[in-house]
Nucleic acid binder design. Sequence first.
DNA 1: GTATCTGCAAAACATTTGCAATTCT
DNA 2: AGAATTGCAAATGTTTTGCAGATAC
Lengths: 150, 150
Amino acid sequence: MSETGAISIDKIRGFLESKGVKPSFQRLKILEYLLKHRNHPSVDTIFQALGDDIPTLSKTTVYNTLSLFTQKGIVASLTVVNNELRYDVLKDPHAHFQCAICSRLYDIPLKNDLFQTDFIEDHQVEDIQVTFKGVCKNCLKSRNVLDKTS
Amino acid sequence: MSETGAISIDKIRGFLESKGVKPSFQRLKILEYLLKHRNHPSVDTIFQALGDDIPTLSKTTVYNTLSLFTQKGIVASLTVVNNELRYDVLKDPHAHFQCAICSRLYDIPLKNDLFQTDFIEDHQVEDIQVTFKGVCKNCLKSRNVLDKTS
DNA sequence: GTATCTGCAAAACATTTGCAATTCT
DNA sequence: AGAATTGCAAATGTTTTGCAGATAC
């Protein structure tokens, strides 16, 4: 497993405090999880994953914490997959690619300057979400295998 | 009310048949509604609106029909607003602008050629959704009024 | 007459809300 | 003790499923 975002609990605590959020154990663990797993987890995924560390954890707390984080600009809830909220730690603006087959979400860097606009058609733009849908490289590979064998 | 897409029932019937969908009364009415109201209605909106024409209509049928249409590539379900599915008749690729205040959805034409790509990072792209979020011109106006009076 | 389509009722989910118990200082 | 946080249980809202009745060819 990739441990890309291995950040110390102390740094996370400091970060939360700097954002005006009291760093409770639950909040620390949830943010740590989000930083470690950059695959846009759902509330349920987070809840399941933290169950081992925090046996008394309630799903309500996960909901509460994520909406607090959203308010404070720490995470963003994004384009819904299968009617459930997915969360993303805020970082450089990027697009998402969602596979129609395995429904995995990938991050796509956005180099294009289309997204520098502050106004479109008199509307004031504050956020941009770009989602590509299609078949991801993994599923393309499996599909090719099938094509060959059939 | 704008009646932009006034298309005859016969044309709609022919279109459905060409897509391999049997043109039942319910299906005709639902597609007619989608063509006439290009404001990304929710299942409930469609259900309410057609209640007059089809008193026996069931919400299940609206769900069934829309997922059939989605399968057949006639409509696309899109980025969820307030956790409900919204539907769009397929037409030229375009972006959406969602107002954070009144939560209205606007269509934004996409002229940029960023979206001609068939592949990004080895993924095969079949659909692109671009959603801008912010404050729409109407709400900007009201906000300005408030600013002046306060 | 058989396939398909429709629609009611119930079930399955995700999310929110009310409130009591817990924790922190 | 007082304020904030947590978590259970119930409520809400959307979507799905099972199945019986209606409809179409």
